[in-house]
Design a protein around this nucleic acid. Structure first.
Lengths: 100, 100
DNA sequence: TCTATATATCGAGATTTATAGATACATTTA
DNA sequence: TAAATGTATCTATAAATCTCGATATATAGA
C-alpha cells in the first residue's frame, strides 16, 4: 500500500452512498433479501438489490461498484447475468494498517 | 463514528497531498527539521514546514490542514504565531475500526 | 506603534465528481 | 432466434473540489 493507492481508495470512500454500501456489505443478510437463484451471500449482493436499497439510478450504482472494485475495495463474481459484489476484507485491512 | 463522519474523513483522504501529509506526520522527525523555537515535535509540525515540503501554496496547505483538523484527523496547537499540526491517532483508530 | 512574519480567509478559474438517461452488451429463456 | 432481464458504458449537466494569488488577521520584535 502506497500513498497513490491509498488516495484512490480514499476517493471511493469520499461519497456517502459508497461508504453506506460498504457498510451494508458488512452484513449482507441484515440488509438485503437472499437472492432468488443462489440462496447464500458468499459472493455478496447483486447490483439490482444494492441499487434499489441505495435509491440511485442503475447506471450510477454500476459505476460506483465498478470504481470500488477497481481500487480493490470490492470483489466481483459473475454468475450468469448477475454480478455479485462483496467486500475485500484483505485490502480493507491493508488500508487501515496504512493509515495507522 | 457514523457514515456521515466517515464520509467527511474520506473526503480528506481523497487527495494525494493530504494523504501524504498524514503519512509524513507519522514520523515528523524523519521528514521535517526541528522547529527553531520549540525543539520537539510533541505538538507536530508548523504550517510553513509542511507547505515547503509539499510544494503547494501557503493558502492551499492552510486550507488542507484546516479541513483535516475540522473532521478530526489532525489536532492543532497554537504557540505564538505558529500553528502546529499533529495526527489525531484516536480518531484515526476509530475510523479504521469503522471500516473493518 | 510600525514592521515583519506566520497563518487564515476570500474570490476565481480549471478540473473532477455526482448522477441521470440513453444505449450497448451479455445471458437466459420462450 | 427473439424477447426479456441484468449490468456496463457513453454522454451530458450541475455541483463540488483543487489550487492559486490577493488580502486580512494575529503575533512578535524593533
Amino acid at each position: 500500500m502506497d500513498v497513490k493507492l491509498a488516495t484512490e481508495i480514499g476517493k471511493c470512500l469520499s461519497n456517502h452512498p459508497r461508504v453506506q454500501i460498504l457498510e451494508w456489505l458488512k452484513k449482507p443478510d441484515q440488509h438485503f433479501p437472499p437472492h432468488e437463484t443462489i440462496r447464500h451471500f458468499n459472493d455478496g449482493v447483486c447490483v439490482t438489490y444494492i441499487q434499489e436499497k441505495a435509491g440511485l439510478s442503475q447506471s450510477t450504482i454500476s459505476t460506483y461498484l465498478s470504481s470500488m472494485e477497481k481500487c480493490g475495495l470490492l470483489i466481483m463474481t459473475r454468475h450468469g447475468k448477475w454480478s455479485y459484489f462483496k467486500r475485500n476484507e484483505e485490502l480493507i485491512k491493508q488500508y487501515t494498517m496504512f493509515l495507522l
